[in-house]
Simulated scan of single mutants.
Amino acid sequence: MILKSEDKQFKLADDGQILWQADATNPLPGVPVGAIKKGETLLKPVAEANGDNLPEGQDKAAVQEKLQEWLDRYIHFSLEPLFRLTGGDDLSEQARSIATQLQGALGILPRSALEDVIAGLDEEGRKGLRARKVRMGPLLVFLPELNKPAAVKLRATLLTLWQDKPLPAQVPKDGVVSFTVADKEIDPDYYRSIGYPVYGPRSIRVDMLDRVVCAVYDGAKDGKFKAEHKMAEWFGSNILDLYAVLEAMGHTKIYDPAEEKAKEEAPVAPVIPEAVAEDVSSEVVAPVAPEVKAKPELATFRLKRGKANEAAKPREPKKFEKK
């Protein structure tokens, strides 16, 4: 029975158990017939059959081999962009180095860890990485295709298993853009590896983080930039958290209109004489439409010093001498 089952009849549960549904037309999860165990590499865990739950007459060794084959296919299918990185022979030495390191890090690394290799990339190397959908952002190098909830959850499961920690893994809610970690004890490297780098009080999905980082450098002028309301909207955070994230990236807040306004003295309300107040209260006042207030100006930051900052500076036009 199990040996002739289709892939859709198996499912990897959050707690690491492998479930089998005897009826191929039934979409519900089945019964546990095995579990995953730590293997020789992070991306190749071992499938171990549970002899107590196998249907009568099923050979445990044969079932275990079947489960392993399914598990390998499932991981390869779910994380296909990761395995695609090192396939083919079209990558230059530098590009292959980036691809290999990125694969070992589950598809995301700080750009600073790869900067020297990136500097040595030729156009063919960059073309090969683009073909593999590698995004080399100002802050992070990553695979956007792995931001899907299924890929996030599987990477979390594999990494938790590899680190000898109990399952189920700690995983953000499906599709969440960011969440607060200010009051939690967390492992920043773990969350970065599953696609949610931690900056300041928030863990942020890498594609949205990259979107804000690009907006920062695109809007920078003379080494400074102004925070924008849309950045907080992209994060799904308040303004103070946005400021904290930007500062955690290494940018320095140099002017905050809200802080300046708070320093000013509050205006004193005029005192209306009692007699006048009575006269006014007897009048019929037409309703006034509420005033639509513009969003307040946000803080200005100085860009973090470094290669990304240098890249944001306007380039000097090339000068050509007449021959």
Rank of each mutant, 00 (worst) to 15 (best):
D52L: 10
L85I: 12
L82T: 02
N238I: 07
S97Q: 14
K318Y: 02
W162L: 08
R155H: 01
C214T: 14
L43W: 07
A289I: 11
E291W: 09
Q163A: 15
M231N: 05
M1K: 10
A289R: 14
D116C: 06
P144Y: 10
V212Q: 00
E145K: 09
E259I: 09
V292C: 05
D218L: 06
K263W: 08
E124P: 05
A113G: 06
D187Q: 14
R302D: 07
R132G: 07
A119G: 09
D241V: 09
Q64G: 09
V177E: 01
C214F: 07
I18E: 03
T100G: 04
D241T: 13
I2C: 10
D218T: 07
P188W: 06
L143P: 11
G104T: 10
G128E: 08
L303Y: 04
V63Q: 10
T100C: 06
E297Q: 15
V141R: 03
V216T: 08
V212G: 00
A312K: 03
V284I: 15
P296F: 10
M1E: 14
P144M: 08
L28P: 00
H251M: 09
V33P: 14
A131G: 06
Q94Y: 02
R130K: 10
I98E: 09
T157Y: 02
G236H: 15
I98D: 05
G223K: 08
P110V: 12
K60S: 08
R205H: 08
D207I: 13
G39R: 07
F10D: 15
N50V: 12
E69R: 13
A289V: 14
K230S: 15
D183H: 10
V31T: 15
E185S: 04
R202E: 00
A169F: 08
K11N: 09
E310C: 02
I75D: 00
R84E: 05
T100S: 04
N309I: 00
T180V: 03
R305H: 05
K11L: 13
L42V: 00
W234L: 15
A99Y: 13
K8F: 05
Q58L: 08
L102W: 05
E56F: 07
A299T: 04
T157R: 04
L19K: 12
Q101E: 14
